[in-house]
Design a protein around this nucleic acid. Structure first.
Length: 450
RNA sequence: GUGGCCGUAGCUCAGCUGGUUAGAGCGCCAGGUUGUGGCCCUGGAGGGCGGGGGUUCAAGUCCCCUCGGCCACCCCA
């Protein structure tokens, strides 16, 4: 086991190339990519806050039992994908593979007034082989509501997901909705399915043959010819729903219809986690052909809080994969969201008098609410202007010996002539900020175009 | 966990059947214009070919191992 502490004290040992890179399945999101992520996250925040959801920041890791209890000991995610570790105090912890269980745990711990409506943007960790749209650390945007079983809440949550995706300008996204039943009807259905499948196990694909008794619902999700031909005539959950579940589903579907949200009823929507009951839904991007086209999904989990030791409390939520959304946005035809999020500043200060002008003027501009950047390290005028141009700034404020002597600043337009037709103006040092405010207001040059 | 393809400068890539000090474009820095960017010209910095071992007089070029990347299965966001 190599550790940083094995380096001799006081000795600087450079990392080798292997160690100095992001671990498998993780990535640094920066530059244009992070700018887009920022836009996506702020769009999400705007949508959910408009609907009364509050931000929840929680721990990135929990007692491992929070996840095993919530997601089921048999779920793939828990069994083979969870990052579990023991801390120095001997506690068995796990990095969150998703956020729902954590949120439910927080609810149990704090007992907030319900319905408790929260949203989050969080990394999630799963130990699996990375591939397109799949990482060991990915990021999720989601909401959870605890404390109401009203089907109108299902409608609100699904609508939130749908409206958000639409706001991103993603085309060709389809919504599938289904029901997993509840403790009153699911057990009997699962039993019926199990015996049906067991009677023709030989016909199932090798992968699922052995898992029929463990989790028969999974077979419904299998895409192989073998399993499909078997499940084609299998008992359907839709026909086995109890009256309450049926009524709930009818109201959800009617509500979506009333809001003009198109969806397809899909009773093979199993979802991977044990805690789901009744409503489940999934949003997928047609543009992302076969592979990882699931943008996100969610559903109701009326027994989860109780399973974690809290009072019986219904709940529902969804999570969307940020990386998936980004992938979908890269597809032709999928327009990006309009965005004023960005890192470029409208003003760039060029200093040829030793740096004091840049130091003072950028501070003054920023305090006035005007984005300003500058070069460091005493570079030539040419180099500084080049940097200004590259920064995306609209205006360069130039202070050289002449300006300093006469107590002025040269404002040079870097993109277009100024309203008065000039390319460059010489204004008094004491009115630069006001001048720039006027120019920026007149031209709308708050940021460089994205 | 299984399988396929791949790994040369910051980026994209060229390096023929193994043979001089490993190249290009972009980017970066500087100069051309001793105070003016975006175009152009010139020059410069920057890699020893993912890592290790082997074959050979000689390996980026062949073999083995390993690490990593991409993609697929599985599962999911």
């Amino acid at each position: 086991m190599v550790s940083a502490s094995s380096d001799r004290e006081g000795e600087q040992v450079a990392l080798d190339e292997q160690a100095a890179r992001a671990p498998i399945g993780t990535q640094d999101i920066w530059g244009e990519a992070s700018r887009q992520v920022e836009a996506v996250v702020s769009t999400f925040a705007k949508h959910v806050e408009l609907a009364g959801y509050g931000l929840l920041l929680g721990p990135m890791f929990e007692d491992a039992r929070v996840f095993t209890r919530a997601m089921g000991h048999a779920s793939e995610v828990v069994v083979k994908e969870m990052y579990t570790f023991e801390d120095h105090g001997g506690r068995l912890l796990a990095l969150r593979p998703e956020a729902t269980a954590s949120v439910a745990r927080a609810f149990v711990q704090h007992r907030p007034p319900s319905p408790w409506k929260v949203w989050y943007a969080t990394p999630a960790f799963r130990y699996e082989r990375p591939q397109a749209g799949r990482y060991r650390q990915h990021h999720q945007l989601g909401v959870e509501v605890l404390g109401s079983a009203d089907p109108d809440l299902d409608v609100e949550v699904i609508a939130l997901a749908e409206r958000f995706v639409a706001a991103l300008g993603l085309a060709g996204v389809s919504l599938r909705v289904g029901s997993l039943g509840d403790p009153a009807c699911r057990p009997a259905y699962v039993e019926a399915l199990r015996s049906y499948l067991a009677s023709r196990a030989e016909a199932c694909c090798a992968e699922h043959r052995g898992r029929i008794s463990v989790n028969p619902l999974r077979v419904l999700d299998c895409k192989t010819q073998e399993c499909r031909s078997v499940t084609a005539d299998a008992p359907r959950l839709q026909e086995a729903l109890c009256a309450d579940c049926r009524n709930h589903q009818d109201r959800v579907l009617a509500g979506l219809d009333a809001l003009g949200i198109a969806c397809k009823l899909d009773d093979s929507l199993v979802r991977g986690l044990d805690y789901y009951t009744r409503t489940t839904f999934e949003l997928s991007a047609d543009a992302l052909a076969s592979a990882q086209n699931g943008l996100g999904g969610g559903g109701r989990y009326d027994g989860l809080v109780e399973a974690l030791g809290g009072p019986p409390t219904p709940g529902i939520g969804f999570a969307m994969g940020i990386e998936r959304l980004m992938l979908a946005r890269l597809r032709p035809g999928a327009a990006g969201p309009p965005s004023d999020v960005g890192t470029s500043t409208p003003v760039f200060v060029v200093d040829m008098v030793g740096g004091s002008a840049a130091r003072d003027l950028t501070d003054e501009l920023r305090r006035a609410g005007i984005g300003a950047d500058r070069a460091f390290g005493q570079r030539s005028l040419k180099a500084q202007l080049k940097a200004a141009d590259r920064s995306g700034a609209y205006y360069a404020c130039i202070v050289g010996p002449d300006e300093q002597a006469r107590g002025s600043v040269a404002i040079r337009s870097l993109r277009d002539v100024m309203p008065g037709g000039e390319r460059q103006l010489d204004v008094g040092r004491d009115v630069v900020v006001a001048e720039l405010m006027g120019l920026i207001a007149a031209t709308g040059a708050t940021r460089a175009p994205l």
